[in-house]
Computed example of a mutant assay.
Amino acid sequence: MVIGLICFSFSEEYYQIFLSFSVLGGLSACTLFTPAVSAVGHWFNVRRGYATGIACTAGGIGGVVFPLIILFAAPKIGFPWAIRIIALLCVVMCTLACLLLKTRLPANLNSGAMVDFRALKDPHYAVTTVAVFLVEFAVFIPITYIASYAIHIGVGDTISYLLIAFLNLGAIPGRFLPGLIADRLGRFNVMVLTSFVCAILTLALWLKSGDNLAAIICYAVLFGFWSGAAISLTPVCISQVCATQDYGKRNGTTFTIVSIGTLTGIPIAGAIQQRDGGEYDDLIIFGGVLYLSAAIAFAIARGVCRGWSLKTIF
């Protein structure tokens, strides 16, 4: 991760940015997140959602701090040095993470280290993977396009860029509060609720906000809060349909499949916008419908795994 950021800070050509930030940075981010979240799950069962949510609040904090570093440091010392400051922070944080991270269970050497697509033969795991795929497919569309939407309607570059910080500000409580509630009311139940609310926010608030800056800021904060569960609770949902010793591998397998959605969702949304001559209405509808599909998928997964009673806590 640190090498990727440093190389990115020296990049001047597109292929250099692609190799350093997209390829090396993307690989590093994935191999940092999945084992860390899985290790947290080793130590908790009843309160796994809350514990994972607390760990994931760091993503919201970083999503606020890092854009602000670039926003305020880049005009004074240049963009490359702003990225190097972030790289220095990553040296400290990642070193501490490597020292503090510890698993409870020994490695299952007999299962190998590759992703296990054969696990999809388990209908409970397979339907959960589909639900996670859809919610991750949806979540990055507003995150990616909210700033460019603001520029499109005439908001200044600085405020448009700050929308990313506002979104992540909402994500800080949105990572751990749903986990706290989910441990009591059911992880799948909360994912149905949060996915549905994100769909309503996208189709009602963002779609109708027009050039109203206050409405757009409200959407960014509220969406940041309600979408936080897509990061913090999805691994916990996977843990409910597999043995703890297989949690890391099942988590990695699911997010390998999910990566296809995150890779294609943003370009598909961009193609929709380009088809509409730069307008955002159909892009927003696309994101909202994906969230509705995710809510339905989690409801179906809940029914398949535990039953269809509305009173079921799962």
Rank of each mutant, 00 (worst) to 15 (best):
T202Q: 08
A119C: 10
G49Q: 11
G278K: 05
Y219R: 03
G78R: 09
I200N: 09
L27F: 10
L263D: 06
R184H: 02
T34G: 02
F66I: 10
F21E: 11
L19K: 05
D122E: 14
D246W: 01
F8V: 04
R48I: 02
A29G: 08
L24P: 03
A73D: 13
G277T: 06
P142K: 08
R306H: 15
G170L: 03
G228H: 00
S22W: 00
W226C: 12
H42C: 04
I284C: 13
L109D: 11
L71Y: 12
L68P: 07
L213S: 05
F223C: 07
N45K: 14
L222S: 13
V304Y: 08
R104F: 01
I285T: 15
G154T: 02
I70M: 15
N45Q: 13
V135P: 04
A97I: 11
P267W: 06
S160K: 07
I300L: 15
I285W: 13
G170P: 03
S232F: 00
G41S: 01
F10W: 03
I141M: 07
A74G: 12
L32P: 01
G53H: 07
V23E: 08
L120T: 04
A138Y: 08
F286G: 14
G252P: 01
Q16L: 05
S160Y: 02
G210R: 08
C90W: 00
I217H: 08
L290G: 12
E279T: 15
G62L: 14
I54T: 06
E279F: 14
N168F: 00
S22V: 09
L180P: 01
L233P: 03
A199L: 11
T194Y: 08
G112K: 07
A301E: 15
R175K: 09
R104N: 06
W226G: 02
S239N: 10
G59I: 09
L292N: 13
I181M: 12
R302N: 11
R48P: 04
L213W: 00
E12R: 15
V289Y: 15
A243G: 09
P35G: 07
V130C: 13
I85N: 09
G288C: 14
W308L: 12
R118C: 05
S22E: 03
S195E: 06
L180W: 00
I172Y: 01
L233S: 03
L32G: 05
F196S: 11
N212Y: 01
Y161D: 05
T194K: 06
R306G: 12
S160I: 04
I266F: 05
G154D: 04
L101Y: 00
P35T: 05
V2S: 03
V197N: 06
A243H: 05
C237L: 08
A215D: 03
S148Y: 00
A147L: 02
F66C: 12
A74D: 13
G25M: 05
A126T: 11
A243N: 10
C237P: 03
V155R: 07
A301I: 12
Y280V: 04
A171R: 14
R47V: 06
L205P: 02
M191R: 07
L24N: 02
V40W: 00
V132L: 12
P75Q: 12
Q245V: 05
V2I: 07
G186A: 01
P67I: 13
F8E: 05
L205A: 06
Y219Q: 04
V304L: 15
A271F: 09
G4M: 06
A126M: 14
Q16C: 06
D246P: 04
A39Y: 02
